[in-house]
Amino acid sequence: MVLPLSLLRTAQNHPMLVELKNGETYNGHLVSCDSWMNIHLRDAICTSRDGDRFQKMPEVYVRGSTIKYLRIPDEVVEMVKDEVKEVRRQQKDNTRAKKNFQRGAGGNVGGPPRGGGAPRGGRGGQRGRK
């Protein structure tokens, strides 16, 4: 499963359309976003609610709470599946590296939590699901 905010993060540098609750639409390239869905677009065009007024701006910051929806290019969905696999692989490598480190220095360290190595990350810890 793909989380909406992960999809948005993967869509960085892609063009997108954002409609706000006040009816304005912004077309631009996503520079960055955060966990509140606040977004930073560059080279944006703002279209008014009636569709009759246009404004071009080099960049714009939009509060997440005012967003109604975002339209993103279809190819981003393909990219995000690869990124999810990559993140999971990195987490596996991290936990493996940590386990090896603990085992190596293990004698002196007082009881590191061993066993119960449930993989971290992902809501509900659903493994094996693509």
Partner: peptide, 28 residues
Amino acid sequence: LILEDSHERVYSTQAGIEQVPLGLYIIR
């Protein structure tokens, strides 16, 4: 929500349903 291959259905009392393709959508 993330909706893939989405389209909007526009209802009207005169014409039939109009389907507007939208593609990949994130709805807040």
